[in-house]
Design a binder for these strands. Structure first.
Length: 587
DNA sequence: GCCGTTTTCGGCCCGACTGTTTTCAGTCG
């Protein structure tokens, strides 16, 4: 079985950790880590890059790492990695997952005390054996035990944005009520809209940081204080999420917000650009540097109270946070060719939602009213099809009965709001659809989705998706990869083949807004959009609250460089219907 | 190990916080 991109990415991250433990040149192990992080986010299988000779075009992949990827794909193994594993116990990598333990400490514990596993480390800390080591004391032993307990309780998996964002937004709202707070914002991966969040970053502008820091570390919901300084504090929230707060003077807002929004790769590139122009960039200012890169003490520093001013000073257009991943955005900002990304305000309809007819929580009438209240111009009711018995899927008879009710409701709303009738049709394990063509033909809009047999082989999954795409009645593939973040991996499909077919048939692909799904994920959405495949951003709502989750889909689309032109439900009702009509098979 | 609109060699972002130190190393983002 061929190694997945994520398998290979993990191997390079492990190599990076092992080389770091060995004390290897830091730029060398950082190269492996960077490659690992990049490979995990690629929108195509590595084999596809090998096949068309573009492997070394991937940023961070050069001759040496390229060769290692080829070896892994061809043989499933890597000689270099096997040799490394013979020298460094792999269980040391578990020890490095503990907060506060890096490569140097892991090496120290291993070499001085023979510790190679988490259990051994915990026992040694409990027995007071660590305090004798250089740089260690009683306090470090206690912190270590707390951190090991926290790791055991919460693990170190990243939290889905849908869970993390409300937590951090509540904390920010609390801080904004404090005296002396001039401005506040989310930063980090929350602001960039990543699907999962490592820790929550909050930025506050104030001239009096001390009372704000105090309020932060003593507020409700703090499980423990990780750091408490003048400008930076960190807490662990009872949910297990780490939240970092930075307080800075208002005059530094632009550089600070830019700096703490990241990503790291984007910031590194931006700093290089600043250096080329004779400045060193940090979170408070742009400072002139001399030819030898020494700071010029007397030269004036430039501060910026907005990000726009900072980017403009460096000769760049302002870059939306969602694009700041060093994926070409700096080059395009320089050339002023950045796309105008889609916004929530562009969305005119929602093409995927459920009612009590299948597994939704609200009646048809209630769901339509809730969607109408949220300002949509049109919606499609898409309950589950008959084989989805657990979800109370609709028989053909019930489907047609529902259609009659949808038509009545639609008529009652008049011309300013349109209720269309569709279905979310299962793509069954054998690759056929769950309603016959003559039934599909009676629907206004058909979503086809994978819900069962998700662990089939790549060939089978791919064929099922290709079948659905080739059915002229199918307008949209719902949540194409069927992943649940942190719960269930995406299906194994040949996405190059799937996208090529969608491009040919003009079938739309969904960006599902449910924060458990966010599917298509951003790198795939970017690739689909670049191929001209129509996209739809839908909530897949099963209750009223879920109708409000559209923002998560929009931010995912923005991370995929998607513009309103790519998105069929960002069109007026007339243009949406025209798109649908053009898709209908000639009668 | 990667990379190049001054470079194919010589760079590779920068600072806060902590715990251990008497001026700093390790970790983190």
């Amino acid at each position: 079985m061929m190694l997945s991109n994520r398998d290979i990415a993990q191997i390079f991250c492990n190599i990076a950790d092992m080389l770091e433990i060995q004390g290897e040149n830091k730029f060398k192990f950082l190269s492996y880590r960077r490659a690992g992080e990049t490979l995990a986010e690629l929108p195509r299988s590595l084999q596809a890059y090998v096949d068309d000779g573009t492997l070394e075009d991937i940023p961070g992949v050069g001759k040496a790492i390229g060769e290692k990827i080829r070896e892994l794909l061809a043989t499933g193994k890597l000689d270099f990695y096997e040799q490394l594993r013979a020298q460094v116990p792999e269980t040391l990598l578990d020890i490095m997952r503990v907060n506060g333990v890096g490569a140097k400490k892991a090496k120290l514990f291993w070499e001085q005390l023979g510790i190679t596993t988490l259990a051994e480390l915990e026992a040694a800390a409990r027995d007071g054996k660590l305090r004798a080591l250089a740089g260690m004391g009683e306090k470090s032993e206690q912190k270590l035990l707390t951190a090991i307990a926290a790791l055991a309780q919460h693990g170190d998996t990243r939290m889905p944005i849908g869970k993390a964002k409300p937590i951090v937004e509540r904390i920010l709202a609390h801080l904004l009520t404090l005296e002396g707070v001039q401005e506040g914002a989310l930063a980090g991966s929350l602001r960039r809209g990543r699907a999962t969040i490592g820790d929550g970053d909050i930025l506050i502008a104030s001239d009096a940081p001390a009372p704000i820091m105090h309020a932060f570390v003593t507020m409700d919901g703090v499980a423990r204080v990780l750091a408490h300084g003048d400008t930076k504090s960190s807490i662990e929230h009872v949910s297990g999420l780490q939240v970092d707060l930075r307080v800075l003077p208002r005059a530094h807002w632009g550089t600070a917000l830019q700096y703490f929004t990241g990503s790291k790769a984007h910031n590194v590139k931006l700093r290089q650009l600043a250096l080329e122009r004779g400045y060193s960039l940090n979170e408070s200012a742009l400072s002139p540097v001399g030819a030898d890169k020494a700071m010029l003490p007397d030269a004036p520093k430039h501060t910026f109270d907005s990000e726009e001013a900072l980017y403009h000073f460096l000769g760049l257009a302002w870059i939306p946070p969602e694009l700041r991943e060093d994926e070409g955005e700096i080059e395009q900002a320089r050339a002023h060719t950045l796309p105008k990304l889609i916004t929530r305000a562009d969305i005119q309809g929602d093409l995927h939602m459920h009612t009590t007819w299948s597994d939704g929580k609200l009646s048809l009438r209630e769901m339509v009213a809730e969607a109408h209240q949220r300002g949509h111009r049109y919606i499609v009711i898409t309950d589950h099809s008959q084989s989805a018995t657990i979800a109370n899927g609709l028989s053909v008879e019930r489907l047609l009965a529902q259609q009659a009710q949808v038509r009545q409701l639609n008529a009652a709303y008049g011309d300013s709001f349109h209720v269309l009738h569709g279905a979310e049709v299962d793509i069954k394990a054998d690759g056929t659809l769950d309603y016959p063509d003559e039934v599909l033909a009676q629907l206004d809009f058909v979503v086809a989705s994978l819900h069962v047999a998700l662990t089939q082989s790549r060939a089978q999954i791919t064929q099922r998706l290709l079948n659905a795409l080739q059915n002229p009645h199918v307008d949209l593939i719902g949540h194409p990869s069927a992943r649940y973040i942190n719960e269930r991996p995406p299906v194994d499909a040949d996405w190059d083949a799937v996208f090529a077919m969608a491009q040919r048939t003009g079938t739309a692909l969904e960006i599902n807004s449910n924060p458990r799904r966010l599917d298509l994920d951003a790198p795939y959405a970017r690739r689909a959009a670049a191929l001209g495949i129509p996209l739809a951003i839908n909530t897949d709502a099963h209750d009223a609250h879920m109708l409000d989750l559209m923002d998560y889909g929009v931010i995912t689309a923005r991370r995929g460089w998607v513009t309103a032109e790519h998105v069929i439900n960002a069109r007026s009702f007339e243009r949406f219907m025209a798109w649908l009509a053009a898709r209908q098979p000639a009668v």
